[in-house]
């Protein structure tokens, strides 16, 4: 599939700009000392990927990418960073394991070179066309085609993801919950605090009256 195609200038410009945003954001994630900056760089990368989804006629996925990834997942990251109060600079010049960085770079170069060499050798995309259904039907939008496929061919997998999400929510609640004993210990500590300091909303209202 290495036919010589010449992309139009707007397409090429969109791709180049998105690629620059994606790679720049990715480097921002791995080089930021501050976890908040890393999360914001992640938004850049996710947005660039969304643009490339639109460029490849995957409109619905681009919207979901922005809403779910940039909207929900990154906000969750930021929430946890602020909740834990770890938004301070960390020392990334320090290298605890000797020789880890050179080995990591060597491994990465080998992996990237190997993947690209395999891609060139295999002529990139091989296999039958449109096994799971065509990606574009004349006169129907992308959402129609995708939705029809999800709710017919992939219905079982779709139902499985529903179960997965419920399990994830329950798991998160169980993990983030304070153990009983700890809770009781904190309650007693709170009761021992001097009563004059406490200014709850009810007391403040009484004072205003």
């Amino acid at each position: 599939m290495l036919a010589t195609v010449h992309p139009t200038i707007p397409d090429a410009a969109t791709f180049a700009l998105s690629a620059a945003i994606i790679i720049g954001g990715a480097f921002g994630v791995i080089t930021s000392r501050n976890a908040v900056h890393a999360a914001l760089s992640l938004v850049l990368t996710l947005f660039g990927v969304a643009v490339l989804f639109i460029e490849q006629q995957a409109d619905f996925l681009a919207v979901v990418q922005v809403i779910v990834y940039a909207g929900a997942i990154v906000v969750l990251f930021l929430f946890v960073i602020m909740f834990l109060g770890v938004d301070r600079r960390e020392d990334i010049a320090h290298e605890p394991l000797r020789g880890q960085r050179p080995m990591a770079f060597a491994l990465i170069v080998v992996a990237l070179g190997g993947v690209i060499a395999l891609g060139v050798g295999a002529h990139w995309a091989t296999g039958a066309h449109a096994v799971a259904g065509p990606s574009h039907l004349a006169g129907h939008p992308n959402v129609y085609v995708l939705g029809k496929s999800v709710f017919t061919t992939y219905l079982f997998a779709f139902e499985a993801t529903a179960a997965l999400l419920v399990i994830a929510v329950v798991g998160a609640v169980v993990l983030a919950r304070r153990p009983r004993m700890e809770e009781k210990a904190e309650d007693t500590e709170r009761e021992e605090e001097p009563a004059g300091v406490a200014t709850g909303p009810s007391e403040r209202e009484e004072a205003a009256e």
């Binding site: 449109a130 096994v131 799971a132 990606s135 574009h136």
Partner: peptide, 8 residues
């Protein structure tokens, strides 16, 4: 490949 499976 013109296949919707990738998007799903």
């Amino acid at each position: 490949l013109g296949d919707i499976g990738g998007q799903v």
